[in-house]
Design a protein around this nucleic acid. Structure first.
Lengths: 335, 335
DNA sequence: TTGAAAGCGATACCAA
DNA sequence: TTGGTATCGCTTTCAA
């Protein structure tokens, strides 16, 4: 069996209180006793139980991370950054893929609460405002890469999606594309909405319109549905000469649709993605995409959460990072 | 504050024991009382604390998952499968990226033990045999996608890496390539070793050799180092006409190296990857690769672990799945 | 069928 | 400085 604090105390001939003190480095203890106890701990290969400590009010040093899908490269990159910074600060990460399903998200949230995680990093939509508000009363939360759907004050680390969409539109305009379309995630995904808004507004300012029929949204399997919807867009009368995709996965679906229709990218149709995941660098052609500072976002989210956990003065509430357009081969001047 | 079992008991006018019984559905309780208590629990929005329950000997319903890197698509796909099946069976997943560093792995392991996870799924190398043996005495472990480096009996869900390497070699041979090279992960990674062994053996049986100088290994950043080492291989005198890469990331590095040298794939050099991640489907050209049944592996690892946790008769100890060669565009008959 | 009480492993307060 | 002890929230005998 694993050694407990009692075993250590007995072996060392002291009280458990003494042992607890050396574990936590608090209280007064003679250096002599401390060393003795330390040795016994070593000998017994003793490791204090986080569970037991948590029961007395200490933290579990565990953070819950909610994302739509850990196997989506964007989120696995976020997850890696979160894990690294968490580890660095002494916290472990429990991962939860919600598939953008509110039901899954809520089940996971309730579970995280039961498991007494110290805090939550949420990178998935939270449509249920009330649930979020209630949640925040019981546990510190920071949003990452997604906006909270409430007007509640809450820590958020995000990229400026509006600007991101605008960047994409401007690039298309510079390349003389005005007959454009958008492939997005479903409307409940806040980041997609903002990206579209930025995209459209920039278009409108330049005197162009973006009809609703030129926007298609995908529910679930981004790759598969993305291709299907892209196929629809590319077969519309007066085919768009450029498509803005709200993430790299969708852009790949579009790439495939174009190929299937015998359209050349960027010659016949230009494509812009979003996220700048590893995928964007390996496709054929490589993807012009709007980059998010993934690593930084993960790191800042963790720091922001831990700051809250440790009761330090909250830092900036909203951190809005700048997206950046990475121009590769999937975009070109309109023929 | 969160409601506790005491709150429920008081509100319902019963003892905490009674409440505990309805939580766990054990013991004898009149249906009437049960309903009353259930209602109070509902009203107080009571959720039993996993922490407290765990302290009394129950499980934490948490599994630790160790992989080299959660942002490597192969492992994020495994992770997703593990998470889904875990969730399905009522378990949460704590993720740990080890970067194939024994030091990180051991730190994480000790941490998982302190956090009282119920079991471990290990998908990263465990070079330290003794540590592994000791580990297995204190907690159920199943290996996934990696062989344990001990002769200890342990649950393992793996693909036949030897056959995988052999599949690659056979494909090259059929395409008349005999001047071949290998790009691998470092020698401590068991899967790479086996793949190379299978590759070489098949080559040898066909009367060809594979010189040590034709094998390069990467330590860390697979993409970056992969490209560097591939560059070296492709600049050797008597340049290899085909390269077998031990995973898709390395294959992409090789693709880049080839491009940098102005070599066309597959015209000038054929490339085979391993894993069949999403990456293999989007590259230019798309990658011929050896596929692993990722989803199945994740699922089986979880089932196997939970079976152990729940003290059921252990199923098969070693599950060896068959890899499959997926032929795409990165391989062709030698000129 | 119900409840009192003894742990589980650690923390922290209070005496000594 | 040290140690005794109540406590955290829950499970589990064991009597009643």
């Amino acid at each position: 069996m694993k050694a407990t604090i009692y075993d250590v105390a007995r072996e060392a001939g002291v009280s458990i209180a003494a042992v607890s003190q050396v574990i936590n480095g608090k209280g007064k203890i003679s250096e002599e006793r401390r060393q003795e106890i330390l040795q016994v701990m070593e000998r017994l290969n003793y490791r204090p139980s986080v569970i037991a400590a948590a029961l007395t009010g200490k933290k579990t040093y565990t953070i819950g991370l909610l994302v739509p899908d850990i196997s989506n490269p964007f989120f696995s990159e976020i997850a890696r950054a979160v894990e690294d910074q968490g580890d660095h600060r002494g916290y472990s990460i429990i991962m939860c893929s919600t598939d953008n399903k509110m039901e899954r998200a809520e089940r996971y949230l309730s579970l995280m609460l039961q498991k007494s995680v110290d805090g939550l990093i949420i990178g998935t939509g939270m449509e249920n405002k009330e649930a979020l508000i209630k949640l925040m009363k019981s546990i510190p939360v920071v949003m990452v890469a997604r906006e909270a759907e409430t007007n509640l004050a809450m820590q958020t680390v995000i990229v400026d999606d509006f600007v991101g969409g605008s960047l994409a539109a401007r690039h298309f305009l510079e390349l003389k594309h005005s007959r454009v379309a958008v492939l997005a995630e479903k409307a409940t995904v806040s980041s997609s909405r903002e990206r579209i808004r930025g995209f459209r507004e920039t278009l409108v300012q330049a005197g162009h319109a973006l009809a609703e029929s030129r926007i298609k949204a995908c529910e679930d399997d981004l790759l598969k549905e993305g291709k299907e919807k892209a196929l629809e867009l590319l077969q519309q009368p007066d085919r768009p000469s450029a498509i803005f995709c709200c993430n790299d996965l969708l852009a790949i679906g579009t790439l495939r649709a174009a190929k299937e229709l015998g359209l050349r990218v960027p010659h016949d149709v230009s494509i812009i993605g979003f996220d700048n995941t590893i995928l964007a660098t390996v496709t054929d052609p490589t993807l012009t995409t709007v980059a998010q500072p993934t690593e930084l976002m993960g790191k800042m989210a963790v720091d922001s959460l831990i700051q809250k956990l440790e009761g330090q003065p909250p830092a900036e509430e909203r951190v809005v990072l700048r997206p950046e357009l990475i121009i590769r081969q999937s975009t070109a001047v309109k023929e």
